[in-house]
Each structure stands twice: as structure tokens, then as C-alpha cells.
Design a protein around this nucleic acid. Structure first.
Length: 563
RNA sequence: UGGGGUAUCGCCAAGCGGUAAGGCAACGGGUUUUGAUCUCGUCAUGCGGAGGUUCGAAUCCUCCUACCCCAGCCA
């Protein structure tokens, strides 16, 4: 065993204010027996990079403190949810490398208990059936500066409320005709406490419970109690729920729940040049601006996976950005850096010529093929790959210039009369060019310097640089998808006058129909990442096959000026 | 506008009264059969602003300012 890749190590080494709280709890006089967290997605869309941060925080925290983390689908709004999303979310979490505790949980499996607790609230005089419609309710609610007014239905008797709630549950009322509300304080400065709604009527089937219910609990009434039922110790959510915390606690205090979870908030992840909002991502999909939720340009986990980002890189990125309560926008370059860092260390190497220019090696026999052996990885013991060398080669058009005045440091590639190293093969010299009628160079006639495979030539033949190549007689054709950021604007969804849809980068996808890959690339498996040397990181697309190779560019190689 | 939050380098972020970590980016040098990687170095007399307490303040107090969240029968 040699020192090899070390992207492993799942438990985060980082710390943050949530960890500090947990450590304080653990060191308190009444420490929790076990830390229990949960990741609670609503199955109404695919997971994105922002969710990845939450997943890493929740699962990572549980792991760090030898606790467990539940996966619970917060499925209280059947109108927008579906099984497709549930399946995709489970796959993404597993792919990221996390395992949820026990079986998958669903808020919908607590509907009966939640219903009983609603009855309990009514019995205690803490909830009532309100016949105000949504518009009227809004008027009664008041606004930031105006206190709300009590609903005219606020003082119905317990008996009447109980009867009404039962009939509500039995489907006797039309959608929107009435709702169950908590009786708290219509004058509270916290709008969430102005008699918030607990249950609404929704005459739709639920993906998990079918037609069993026609009343569904609202988030506030479901979330905290579900946490309590699962024995969650630390319920970690994003900042916009901060104002809901008093309500979260009100339910925990006023209901005979089996545990007392606490809610903590952190700021959500934002990245420039993209959007991280399920609603907006869904819009991109619905309006066909991208090929789907897993389009490689999407900041979704499935999109990034198809793009060639690795789970380790995404996890590393989440560690890099940290967890705080201050809003910020992370530079997408940080994500890219994490991806390059992982791929540099772990991706197999190969050569692929994107924009081919023919090179004929005049002093190499037409019928000869020389097999060369190249390391799959320059530093890791990942074995070798066989590479055929012949008289007819493809090199990159960009790697040749007719301008012989270019300095050797300025242009480390091929020019007439000078030498260049063909990566893993010979040093060659460009002797002359052949042009077509329009004056464009269509072929280079070159000669190789003997005995320079794996050996440096005498000083007078010192190559200007190293370029990649493939044998035209053996190369396999492939299609390349070159991606650029989806938006031209750093903050596409922050414009008052303009929709983010108008700021889509028209060049975010460039298709190169025919590039030439070295033969070993025929074995590329879906999701297998490569570094095409001197070009970038690529991954075999989900639709790639031996019959038609398709690679997605994950990211180009970093480039230091002068090129 | 009432309430709740947040302000430390271009970006993210440590710091928890003892004299500003780290990462990303950027900029210089070295190595290199990938202009990649690697490596060495530079990068906040300053912590939103103004006062104050203290021997000493990014950290405590006061007053400002900016930005974010809340007025869904969404989560």
C-alpha cells in the first residue's frame, strides 16, 4: 500500500455554532442520550446544492456525535408532491454517501396522531374552527403595523368546534370554506402567532395516504410534532423559519408530545451565477430552458452528478463554506475548486482531440503501429493504458501556429522548424504544412526524433512544450458537451425589472459532434470521470454507450494566463 | 412601517476582553513529458459607522447605518 487518494473520511472535521450548541448540551446536567437530527425535504422537486449543505449538516452532525439522522419526507401538501420526487431525493442522498436511520419516515404517517393532537388543542380551548375564507382571514390578520382582529368564530364552544372538526375531516365542507386555527394572539408582533392555521381542507389524494384524508395539516402544526415523535433532539432548519420558532415551541408546550426537540436555524446556501430555489429550478425544467432536473447545467444534485461532480467534492465544498447565521453568496469558483481538487487526485487520464488537425509523421512507416504504454494516473498506481502510435495523427488545431516568431515561452506548442513533445510518445519536428484552396492549414508534415519515447532528446532538439494527440488510424469518435454557467449574471434572480429566465447564458451548452478519443476511452462507463489531458475533466454522459460515446465536460482545467 | 435576524480581506469564514486563523480568488518565484498538479512567497495598524468602559476591545455598553426574513388555506 502506498500513500494514495484520501478523499475519504466522512465525519466532518469542521465545527460550527450548531456543534457548539450540541457540545454544550452534551456537557449539560441533563444531556441527551443520543443526538438525533433529521433531513426533512418536501417531495415537490429535486434536491439542489443548497439541500446538499443541509444534508451534510444534518447527517454529518449526527455522524460526528455518534447519533442518527432520519430522512423524513415533509409531505403535507399533496397538491405539489409526487413519488417521482421521493425516489429522486432518496437516490441523491444515498449517492452523496449518507445513510438515514431506520426506514424512510413520512410526516403523512403521523396524520392520525396529528389529528388527535388537533382535537386535544380544541379540547383545551386552544384551537377553533374558523369560517373565514382566505381573503377575509388576511384582512383580519392585520399587517406589520396594525394588530389583527379576532375572528368572529374565535369563541365557538369546544363542543361545537369538536363537531365541526369531525365534519371537516369527514369531507362535509368545501375546500376553503373553513379551517382549524390555533387560538394564540391576534395582536402579536409576530405574525406567525396571529391565530395560525393548523388544518385546511384539500380534496386531493395523497401520494402516500391515498384518499384517506381530505384535511391536511399545515407545516407549522406538523413539523415540530413530527420531530417530537421521532425523538429529534436538534431540529436544524434555515433562517426563514426563525419567526416560526415561537410557534414551534408553543405546540411542544401545549401538546402531550413525547419529547422536546429544539429548533436551530442557519443561513441557506447561495451561489453566484445560479439559482437555488426549487421553484425557479422547476420553472427552468417546465419551460424547457434545460433538458430536465438532471441537466448538467443545473445546480441540482442529479445535475451535478451528470456533470461529473463527485459526491466527495460536494461534501468537501459544504465543509468549505461553513455554517453560520449570516447571509452570503458563495463564489461558484469555490465549488469548482473543490471539484477540480477531487478530480485532479482521482480521475483517470486520457487524451482526446477536440478540434483535429492532421499530422503526418513522414519518417514513420505507413503500415506500422507502435503500442505505447501510459500511466492511467501520473501519481497514483492506477495501472497503465495502451496507446497506439502511427504515421497519421490528430493534434489540436490550437496547438499549431504558422507564426514562427512566437517565443518558446510564449507559445509552448508546434511551429514550423521547431520541436514539441507528443505526450507519452516522441518528440517531433514540424517540417512543412499543406494548405487548402482557401489558405487554411489542413495538414502538417512532421518527423519524429528517434529514441525519444520516455527519454529526453539532445539539447538541440529540446521541445517547446508537450501537446496531446491521438492516432488517426485508431482513435474513436465521440461527442462532447461543453458547458458554461447557466446564467450570464452573477445574481440572476435579484433583478427587480428582469426575470432570471432572461439572463440565461445562450452559450451554456456547446456540442462538439465529433472529437477523437484515444481507444481506451471506449471503456468509459457512465459517471466515470476522466481528465482529458490539457483540456479538462470529462465524464461519460448518462446516455453514452459503446456505440456512441458522449462525454460531458465537468470543468475545464485551470488555466494560468498566457494562452 | 411593528417584530425577528445579520454585519471581520474581492468571496466564504475563524475569533467568545489580551493585541486579526484558514479556504477560494488574485499577484509574484520554483518544479514539471498536462501552460494542469505540486511548491515557495505576497495579500485586513484593520474587524459596518460614531462615541464610551478598560492598562488593553472585532470581542463589553450606547447611539446610528446597511442588508435579510415575516402580512400563503406553501414549506
Amino acid at each position: 500500500m502506498s500513500t494514495d487518494n484520501s478523499t475519504a473520511g466522512n465525519a466532518p472535521k469542521t465545527t460550527n455554532f450548531i456543534h457548539q450548541i450540541i457540545e454544550d448540551d452534551l456537557n449539560s446536567s441533563n444531556p441527551p442520550a443520543k443526538i438525533v437530527t433529521r433531513f426533512p425535504p418536501e417531495p415537490n422537486g429535486y434536491l439542489h446544492i443548497g439541500h446538499a449543505k443541509s444534508i451534510c449538516l444534518n447527517f454529518g452532525t449526527a455522524e460526528k456525535y455518534n447519533g442518527v439522522c432520519n430522512l423524513r419526507f415533509d409531505d403535507t401538501n399533496p397538491e405539489k408532491e409526487s413519488q417521482e420526487y421521493i425516489d429522486a431525493i432518496k437516490k441523491d442522498i444515498s449517492w452523496l454517501g449518507f445513510e438515514w436511520h431506520e426506514e424512510v419516515k413520512y410526516t403523512s404517517s403521523y396524520f392520525q396522531q396529528l389529528y388527535l393532537w388537533a382535537v386535544h388543542l380544541i379540547e383545551q380551548g386552544n384551537a377553533y374552527i374558523c369560517d373565514l375564507d382566505s381573503e377575509q382571514a388576511r384582512t383580519y390578520r392585520g399587517d406589520f403595523t396594525t394588530p389583527g382582529k379576532n375572528s368572529p368564530y374565535r369563541d365557538r364552544s369546544v363542543t361545537e368546534n369538536l363537531a365541526l372538526f369531525a365534519r371537516m375531516k369527514d369531507g362535509e365542507f368545501a375546500e376553503g370554506s373553513c379551517s382549524l386555527r390555533a387560538k394564540i394572539d391576534m395582536k402579536s408582533s409576530n405574525m406567525n402567532l396571529r391565530d395560525p392555521m393548523l388544518y385546511r381542507i384539500l380534496n386531493v389524494d395523497h401520494h402516500q395516504t391515498g384518499d384517506k384524508w381530505c384535511i391536511y395539516p399545515i407545516y407549522d402544526f406538523a413539523h415540530g410534532q413530527s420531530d417530537a415523535l421521532e425523538g429529534i433532539t436538534h431540529s436544524i432548519c434555515t433562517l426563514e423559519f426563525e419567526g416560526h420558532r415561537p410557534l414551534y415551541e408553543w405546540f411542544i408546550e401545549n401538546l402531550p408530545v413525547p419529547a422536546t426537540p429544539r429548533q436551530y436555524e442557519f443561513s441557506r446556501l447561495e451561489i453566484n451565477y445560479t439559482v437555488t430555489s426549487k421553484r425557479k429550478l422547476k420553472q427552468l425544467v417546465d419551460e424547457k430552458m434545460v433538458s430536465g432536473w438532471d441537466d448538467p447545467r443545473m445546480p441540482t444534485i442529479s445535475g451535478m452528478r451528470r456533470r461529473g461532480f463527485t459526491a466527495a467534492a460536494i461534501r468537501r465544498f459544504c465543509e468549505m463554506v461553513g455554517v453560520t447565521r449570516s447571509n452570503g453568496v458563495v463564489d461558484v469558483g469555490m465549488l469548482e475548486s473543490a471539484v477540480r481538487d477531487d478530480l485532479e487526485q482521482n480521475a483517470r487520464r486520457a487524451m482526446c482531440v477536440v478540434d483535429p488537425l492532421k499530422v503526418t509523421i513522414s519518417n514513420f512507416a505507413e503500415d506500422n503501429t507502435q503500442m505505447l504504454s501510459l500511466a492511467v494516473h501520473p501519481k497514483l498506481p492506477m495501472g497503465d493504458r495502451e496507446l497506439p502510435f502511427s504515421r497519421n495523427l490528430w493534434i489540436e488545431k490550437q496547438d499549431f501556429s504558422e507564426d514562427t516568431s512566437l517565443g518558446r515561452k510564449k507559445f509552448k506548442r508546434l511551429v514550423i522548424g521547431d520541436y514539441v513533445r507528443l505526450r507519452g510518445a516522441y518528440v517531433i519536428k514540424a517540417d512543412s504544412v499543406i494548405k487548402d484552396d482557401s489558405g487554411e492549414v489542413v495538414e502538417i508534415l512532421a518527423s519524429l526524433v528517434p529514441d525519444t519515447v520516455g527519454a529526453n532528446p539532445p539539447a538541440e532538439f529540446k521541445p517547446r512544450g508537450v501537446i496531446h494527440w491521438v492516432s488517426a488510424d485508431h482513435a474513436v469518435p465521440c461527442e462532447l458537451h461543453i458547458y458554461d454557467r447557466l446564467f450570464t449574471d452573477a445574481a440572476p434572480d435579484k433583478h427587480k425589472e428582469k426575470s432570471f429566465l432572461e439572463l440565461i447564458n445562450p452559450d451554456s451548452l456547446r456540442v462538439i459532434e465529433r472529437a477523437w478519443a484515444e481507444p481506451s476511452l471506449k471503456n468509459a462507463q457512465v459517471e466515470m470521470g476522466y481528465q482529458f489531458e490539457r483540456t479538462g475533466y470529462f465524464v461519460a454522459d448518462a446516455q453514452s454507450s459503446a456505440a456512441k460515446l458522449v462525454f460531458n465536460q465537468t470543468l475545464p482545467l485551470r488555466e494560468s494566463k498566457a494562452k
